[in-house]
Design a protein around this nucleic acid. Sequence first.
DNA 1: TAAAAATACTCCATAGGTATTTTAT
DNA 2: ATAAAATACCTATGGAGTATTTTTA
Lengths: 303, 303
Amino acid sequence: MVTMRHLRYLVALAETRHFGRAAELCHVTQPAMSAQIRELEEMLGIDLVERRRGAIAITSEGEEIVRRAAAVVASVRDIEDLARQRQGVLVGPLALGIIPTVAPYLLPLCLATLRARHPRLEPRLRETRTTSLLAELAAGRIDVAILALPVDRPELETLALFTDRFLLATAADDPDAAAGPADAATIRPERLLLLEDGHCLREQALAHCRLASAANLATLGATSLTTVLQMVAAGYGVTLMPELVARAGFDDPRIVLRPFREPAPAREIALAWRAASPRRKDFQALGRLVTECWKAADGRAAA
Amino acid sequence: MVTMRHLRYLVALAETRHFGRAAELCHVTQPAMSAQIRELEEMLGIDLVERRRGAIAITSEGEEIVRRAAAVVASVRDIEDLARQRQGVLVGPLALGIIPTVAPYLLPLCLATLRARHPRLEPRLRETRTTSLLAELAAGRIDVAILALPVDRPELETLALFTDRFLLATAADDPDAAAGPADAATIRPERLLLLEDGHCLREQALAHCRLASAANLATLGATSLTTVLQMVAAGYGVTLMPELVARAGFDDPRIVLRPFREPAPAREIALAWRAASPRRKDFQALGRLVTECWKAADGRAAA
DNA sequence: TAAAAATACTCCATAGGTATTTTAT
DNA sequence: ATAAAATACCTATGGAGTATTTTTA
């Protein structure tokens, strides 16, 4: 008889491709993992994994079983979530993923309120880029993510939270710093400092400046917005900074933040979750709270 | 941690609405069933069942859990089926439901061939009417059913097997017995003998004779075709008999079987299974075999 | 030869059984 | 009064741990 244990272990093994790490994920020892996988193979009469020295491989027959097993594991987690949800909104564990250009700025705006209003919520935070977040959402490793639209995955549902306009960050001693509203078209590509490849903020900035190619862009990208802003402050160039950073209290005398001419470049920040998740109400409540905190931080925005 | 055991027991309980019978279905004792259900309620923090003297009731919150649990149980059975299927086609257990107006006539045509070609198949037969079959298919209690089209359930897939024309069964000493091809329009309703309400064959016969109402039909319906034919033989009236019965070797000197004028009334016999089932190949193989046996029995058809 | 998986064994948690009590109609 | 579910208690299966061996790149 196939048990949930067999399926959970199999899914973990397929994710890690390593008995030891899969065992760790499931909070058991490696022999326990081996025994269960072996038993499952025995029961099904199929070789599910090819044992090899390096990373093990799931056999082709195994792939289909793994796909179905993952769906079952997710469904059962949904049952547990559904039950928990009945206890009230935003109660119990919530795995929340946030992109790196949002997390450090949005969290200070929201966490205190979240804590105060939902003291029984146990948030588990994960900060990583959009592509990882989407994969982890699908796999059920996280419940909900905060990222920039568009998402374009039919199996995910999204809820727009707020529009985050970009500001042009210029060194205070730059001659242009005193000028009026900025114009994306006038930015000289070789002065534009951006995050490294893979950050959605980089793509958005490029799109808004109508720079299709990164050919003549300034040097190497940075890993964090803070670093980019330090570079701007030191006079190495300019960058597009989300208003969110300003609302989170960013204030550096060496940097001037100038709004763009309308229509200002902007990114749409949203929640995303598996459409099949039973925790819709949780996510909607979370969304309302975030939007509210965003609006409340309006006064703190830079001029 | 929710286990498959919890879910299987819950589904059984929801089906039987009785701890004792649910326990029996799961091959355990009633206290074992009680303990698991109680534990599941504990874990989820939800009252799933209302314990009452007569039939117990699933609570409204419980219904949703039961729905999801049933889906999970079916998915896991699909995984097991998928594995078994890999061993070869038509191997291992197969729960097959057949409507009562087909089973006793089709089985003798097919079983020997099925046995010979697929000796490792372990068929479990269930004979009941269309509505039960459809419910049991959906619940996964049977894997596949043989019934008459149309089915009209989006979650089921069907495969037409053969067209079963109706013959008019008349007593040999009836003055009409010697006449040529029969005409449905000329049948006198008060002479038409049919199965009792609920058999699809009854509805089909009525439809083909364009008798919307059963108002002036002959007496009470019978439970089996054999009984109806006995009544015809005894001169109590006529009936529409599927050609299948003739191909299965029906031959009674007291009864004359007359074909209908074209287009002859007929029923379409088909296989049906849950579209999500991984055993499609099994079912298609079974379908081919049945169709072949049907054709092979052609010679035995009455004139 | 080293990392990784399998094996050997021991232990204990828990599912299930039997006997009985409680509950609800 | 009685059927049905809950409880008490015991047993045993099997899942997990530790220690060790086998495998294979």
